[in-house]
Simulated assay, not measured.
Amino acid sequence: MPKIKIPPVLRNATSGEREVNVEGTNVREVLEALASRHPATREQLFNPEGELNRYVNVYLNDEDVRVLQGLDTPVASDDTVVILPAMAGGAR
């Protein structure tokens, strides 16, 4: 079963879970399974059109899914999906 690593910023939405195991054959299904289990993550991850929010980076085994097949990237049962929200800010 694929594993999703949850970043600290989303852990309030997952009842503090750091990792979640879910079913899915591609990245979209895995993230949808997370959102079904923890509905508060949905708007953090997806825009209204169902695509990844532009400030959310998702990695499959250390590869950015945007340079693979995006949300259609196949996922195997022993894969790890990492959600990494983009950081912004700083001083001028």
Rank of each mutant, 00 (worst) to 15 (best):
D78W: 09
V56P: 03
A40H: 13
M87H: 07
A76E: 15
M87N: 07
V30D: 01
G16V: 11
I83K: 00
L45N: 01
L45Y: 03
V81H: 11
D62Q: 10
Y59S: 07
Q44C: 09
L71S: 03
I6W: 09
N61M: 12
R54T: 12
A33G: 10
R18K: 15
N61I: 10
S77V: 14
K3L: 15
T41H: 04
L71N: 02
Q69D: 14
A33D: 06
K5F: 14
T80C: 07
D79M: 09
R11V: 00
V82R: 13
L45D: 02
L60Q: 08
G24W: 02
L45A: 00
E19W: 04
K3Y: 08
V56F: 09
N53C: 05
I4W: 04
S36F: 01
N53T: 05
G24M: 00
G90V: 10
D78V: 10
G89M: 12
D78H: 13
V65D: 03
P48H: 03
A13M: 15
G89A: 11
M87A: 08
I6N: 02
V30R: 01
D62E: 14
P48S: 05
E19Y: 12
Q44T: 08
A86Q: 15
L31T: 00
P85I: 07
T41G: 05
V9A: 15
L52M: 04
G50P: 04
E19N: 13
P39C: 03
A13D: 15
D72F: 00
T80I: 12
M87W: 04
T80D: 07
D64N: 14
L52E: 03
S77A: 12
K3N: 11
R42F: 01
P8K: 10
P74W: 06
A76T: 10
V27Y: 02
G89K: 09
T73E: 06
R66L: 14
G50K: 03
I6G: 05
G24Q: 01
V67M: 15
V75P: 02
V27T: 04
A91S: 13
S15G: 09
L68H: 09
I83N: 06
Y55I: 12
L71Y: 00
P39N: 03
D62M: 11
A86T: 13
N26I: 07
A76L: 12
A88Q: 12
P48E: 12
E63M: 11
V56G: 07
F46S: 00
P48V: 00
N12Q: 11
L34N: 02
A76W: 06
N61V: 08
R54N: 13
V20R: 00
L10K: 05
E49G: 02
